[in-house]
């Protein structure tokens, strides 16, 4: 009698399941690795911007929103970056201290979804690296 034995059926099921699992998860896995690589790069770009701002003399910190210029942004898809420098809010700096609030944001698109990394900090006159 022709037909398939139980062992053959089981093996086919296991084989097909394995192939389906690999086909379903491997592309996602590679996407995730790319996403984490982009996230790390964006974080490094933002951190470098913060360091550069700290190395700038306080008197030269102008309240403004400016675009980030970093050659590594080319490695991120549809990337853009902005740094916002503003006076410390009166509710926070109650003694009118010479402090600027700095926000650096790097955004890009992963799989057509917008991602971003944002770092907030203060830079004060006579502070770190000043």
């Amino acid at each position: 009698m022709k037909g398939f034995s139980l062992i053959e059926m089981l093996l086919v099921v296991v084989t097909v399941s394995t192939i389906v699992f690999l086909l379903a998860s491997l592309p996602n896995a590679f996407l995730l690795m790319t996403k984490s690589k982009h996230l790390s790069l964006a974080r490094e770009i933002a951190s470098k911007q913060i360091e550069d701002i700290r190395a700038t003399a306080f008197v030269n910190l102008i309240n403004d929103t400016t675009e980030i210029s970093d050659i590594r942004l080319n490695q991120l898809p549809d990337a853009a970056g902005a740094k916002i420098i503003a006076d410390c809010e009166a509710a926070v700096c109650t003694n009118e201290e010479n402090i600027k609030q700095v926000t650096v944001t790097v955004s890009w698109k992963d799989n057509n979804q917008l991602q971003s990394v944002s770092l907030n900090t203060f830079v004060g006159e006579g502070g770190i690296n000043q």
Partner: peptide
């Protein structure tokens, strides 16, 4: 990195 930037902000506030 975010936590470190926040900690630096605290130092800047305290230095003044």
């Amino acid at each position: 990195s975010r936590a470190f930037s926040a900690a630096e902000a605290g130092i800047e506030k305290a230095l003044t």
